[in-house]
């Protein structure tokens, strides 16, 4: 089980959380102006990165806040978590905060 550091509550067990998938996917402001291809891209296509990946988490059985996390998907190690609205930190693997 992973330990997830909630920006509000600190390190907590993974079962208190729900993972919300890839972060920083902005909903198009005017969907009707998008082509089918662009809409499919927004709806279905995901980075699915092997390595550093930004994703959304919700502390569902805790403070119930959404936040973002940078995690290395090859090792499952969390690099950093940050609040919604903050910019994705510029970090590469090897700089993990232990």
């Amino acid at each position: 089980m992973l330990l997830v550091t909630c920006p509000y509550c600190g390190p907590r067990p993974e079962i208190e959380f729900r993972c919300g998938g890839e972060a920083h996917i902005a909903r198009p402001a005017e969907p009707s102006k998008l082509s089918d291809k662009e809409w499919a891209e927004f709806l279905f296509v995901r980075t699915n990165a092997k390595g550093v990946f930004a994703e959304r988490w919700n502390h569902a059985h805790g403070c119930q806040r959404w936040f973002n996390a940078l995690r290395d998907t090859a090792s499952d190690r969390f690099i950093q978590t940050y609040k919604v609205g903050e910019k994705r930190p510029d970090r590469t693997p090897g700089q993990e905060r232990l």
């Binding site: 089980m1 992973l2 993974e14 079962i15 729900r18 993972c19 998938g21 890839e22 699915n48 990165a49 092997k50 990946f53 994703e55 995690r71 998907t73 090859a74 090792s75 499952d76």
Partner: peptide
């Protein structure tokens, strides 16, 4: 598991 991963392991829960 609920998250994207390439680690070929998963949570014991």
């Amino acid at each position: 598991d609920q998250y994207v991963s390439y680690s070929q392991q998963g949570g014991i829960h």
